[in-house]
């Protein structure tokens, strides 16, 4: 059912845009319309599905292996570190080298996330509120440092490309690097049981013959790769990796093998909805998907935090 809804929304998204291709034209496009579809509309749809699904999977894996629902790529410095990485790669290698941007962004994302987890292991009160606050502040510090460097080097316009994800720039031959996230996310699915076991804690994992440290770090590398690749190709999509897994697991529980496909579907659907809405609200102008995701995500995030605070208070 969810898959059918996603297909319908995907179909709809192909028919939304300024150039003259409407939903009605999709079944029998003219040559010109077909060209618009293959160079712009279809790549855009693929990019949305890949980014939405993989970032949600990354968030799901992250909250499970850290045993904390408020740890996600956009609330623990992973995304911000990746942006800093792209900026530095751009300074060192120029703006054309995609490979270097990817590699350095991934490296920074891994480093930034590990540093956050180190900080987390030193905090005594590891409840949701404190972790969320520390994570947001930490991300804020990295973002501030990034802005400072970008300002000094006159690269502020570039920065916006990476921090505010948008699918409007996605055209054929300019987004294919995003395909990297597909095998990485699939790897996440293959490891799903191990991540669930690690999410039970070090003692349970060891008892069940799972190497806790190794699985934890493998998970962090998967999460960091997905986040960094999306930042480089599309730009950051705030709160996506936090709210989608939270809502899905609230409803379905934390057995990753079961919830991961649903999370992927829901994430793709959410980003698709944001993107289509963004194209319609101010037609013919666009509001970027990340802006809408940020507004909706922010509200849901506050709701989740209030809920956590409520429960903590009740205890």
């Amino acid at each position: 059912m969810g898959l059918a809804a996603l297909c319908a929304a995907g179909w709809l998204s192909l028919g939304v845009g300024v150039a003259g291709v409407g939903v009605a034209d999709l079944l029998s496009p003219t040559d010109e319309q077909l060209r618009i579809l293959t160079t712009s509309r279809i790549p855009r749809l693929i990019a949305i599905v890949l980014a939405g699904a993989s970032l949600s999977i990354a968030g799901l894996i992250m909250q499970r292996i850290t045993q904390n629902r408020f740890v996600s790529p956009s609330t623990s410095g992973t995304t911000e570190a990746a942006v800093l990485g792209v900026l530095i790669a751009t300074l060192v290698f120029g703006s054309t080298s995609l490979t270097w941007k990817m590699l350095i962004a991934i490296g920074f994302a891994i480093g930034g996330t590990m540093l956050f987890l180190q900080m987390l292991s030193r905090i005594r009160h590891r409840d949701g509120l404190v972790v969320a606050l520390v994570g947001l502040m930490y991300g804020g510090v990295i973002a501030a440092a990034t802005t400072f460097v970008a300002y000094q080097r006159d690269l502020l316009q570039f920065l916006e490309i990476w921090t505010a994800g948008s699918f409007s720039g996605v055209i054929e031959n300019r987004y294919e690097a995003l395909f990297i996230v597909a095998p990485v996310a699939l790897l996440g699915y293959l490891f799903a049981d191990r991540f669930t076991v690690v999410g039970l804690g070090a003692d349970f994992a060891t008892n069940l013959g799972v190497n806790y440290q190794r699985v934890l770090y493998s998970g962090l590398v998967i999460v960091s790769m997905i986040s960094a690749v999306v930042v480089v190709v599309i730009g950051a999509i705030p709160f996506l990796g936090l709210i989608v897994p939270n809502i899905v697991t609230l409803w379905m529980g934390d057995n990753l093998r079961r919830v991961l496909p649903v999370t992927a579907l829901a994430g793709a659907g959410f980003v698709l909805a944001c993107d289509v809405a963004g194209r319609l609200i101010r037609y013919p102008y666009e509001i970027s998907a990340s802006t809408l995701a940020g507004i909706i995500g922010g509200v849901v995030f506050i709701g989740l935090i209030m809920r956590a605070a409520d429960r903590a208070g009740a205890r």
């Binding site: 799903a192 049981d193 669930t196 076991v197 039970l200 349970f204 069940l208 013959g209 529980g253 079961r258």
Partner: peptide, 24 residues
């Protein structure tokens, strides 16, 4: 003192007991 941060069903938890043998 087994407090889990994970929401698992009883059946799922018990199934994970088979992990060393069947790897999921």
């Amino acid at each position: 003192d087994n407090t889990l941060a994970a929401r698992l069903s009883v059946a799922d938890l018990v199934r994970f007991g088979r992990f060393p043998h069947s790897k999921g």
